[in-house]
Simulated scan of single mutants.
Amino acid sequence: MLKEIVLKKFNLIPKTLIILGSGINEFVNNLTDSTNISYNELFNFKTDESIGHKGTLHLGYINKKPLLIMEGRKHYYEDVSNKDMRFMIQSFASIGVKNIIITNACGAMNESFKPGDIMVINDHINMMGLNPLVGDNNNALGPRFVDMSEPYDIEFREMIFEVAKENNILLRQGVYVSYIGPSYETKAEIRAFRMLGGDVVGMSTVPEVIIARHASMRVLGLSLITNMSTGITKNKLSHEEVLEIGKQSVNKLSKLIINFLERI
């Protein structure tokens, strides 16, 4: 069904899929000649709309480039199975999507970062205690054992820094730590993650990257820093703050992504 819908819209399979993190939904306003379909209709999946994840696949163009955009994603804290976590990304890979831009909202552990900054992910640490590839392997997409020495495409990272420099946008880089949630991290956990080399922490992205790399998709990871982590800030953490900072920073992130798309 996915392939038929995409081909009906574009008469081809777009090379690139974008996943929008919390508060970054307004990026879809950059699309022209667009249409959308709910995950429930397309994949028989629902997402928790109360946390800003609408569960909608958008199909459209940016500067005449056909794109697929996921507005909302699945999280392990929603009590999904590994099979369900794999399903959407593997569906796109199986129809021929080659590139994936994964965005997220996150908390900063690196004290040189601040809310509103954007970080290019150059590596990650999986602290979820889960791996979405556990279970039956899809041999048609990739091998049982997946190399993760460079999960985030080096050339893509170089390109996005060139774009940032040309547009005078400050761009950080660092290590993303994935945490299962839905509770925020304790001060002791943040201290431990910092000792391990983490710069930011969030509750998504890493499962999607693992699935994408299994299918040999090229990955660009962008983290929008929406708050400082527990113990770094004295403020109580809230999802409302995450959504608000995301909305304030979406134009800067959009500019980066749109200019990056012209290069791939």
Rank of each mutant, 00 (worst) to 15 (best):
E240Y: 11
E78C: 11
G231M: 10
N235H: 11
N126D: 06
E111I: 14
T32P: 01
I125G: 08
N44F: 05
I121T: 10
A215W: 08
N138E: 12
G96L: 07
E71K: 13
R194C: 07
Q173S: 14
E162H: 00
S94T: 04
V80S: 09
N259A: 09
V97I: 13
S238A: 10
K255Q: 12
S112D: 14
L42H: 06
Q173H: 15
K64A: 08
R86V: 01
G246P: 06
T56H: 01
I69Q: 02
G221M: 05
V163N: 05
L256H: 05
K64P: 00
G23S: 03
L17R: 06
S94P: 04
I154E: 13
I102P: 11
L256C: 04
H214D: 07
L17C: 05
L222V: 12
M85P: 09
D153K: 02
N126V: 03
S50F: 02
D199K: 09
S112N: 14
I13S: 12
I37H: 09
A164K: 13
I225G: 11
Y61N: 04
I264E: 00
I95P: 09
K114P: 04
G231P: 11
S229G: 14
N25C: 07
H124V: 03
F113C: 03
I180D: 00
S50P: 01
N99R: 12
P182Y: 06
K15G: 04
R144N: 14
G197H: 08
I211F: 08
E262Q: 13
Q90E: 15
R218L: 13
H214T: 10
I232P: 07
V201I: 15
I118Q: 07
L57R: 02
I245H: 02
M203Q: 12
F27N: 06
E162S: 08
N63F: 05
L141N: 11
E185V: 11
P115I: 05
S81G: 11
K64Q: 13
F27E: 08
R172T: 05
A212G: 15
N259C: 10
I121H: 08
V28D: 02
S229L: 06
Y77R: 13
D153G: 04
Y39G: 09
I24D: 07
K8I: 00
D84R: 03
V250G: 01
F27C: 06
I19T: 08
G198P: 13
R263V: 11
L59C: 02
V209S: 13
Y39S: 10
R191F: 01
V146H: 11
S178G: 15
L2Q: 09
I13E: 12
A212T: 10
I264C: 03
G135S: 13
E240V: 14
K9W: 01
F161S: 11
N167P: 08
M88A: 07
T32A: 03
E208Y: 06
V201N: 04
S254M: 04
V250A: 00
K255S: 11
S34F: 13
G129R: 07
L59P: 02
M127H: 12
Y77D: 12
L253M: 15
I13G: 12
E162R: 05
L12K: 15
R144F: 05
C106W: 00
H239Q: 08
Q248E: 13
A140C: 01
V175R: 09
N259I: 06
I190N: 07
L237T: 06
Y179R: 00
I245W: 01
C106K: 00
R218S: 13
E162L: 03
E241H: 01
C106I: 00
K9F: 01
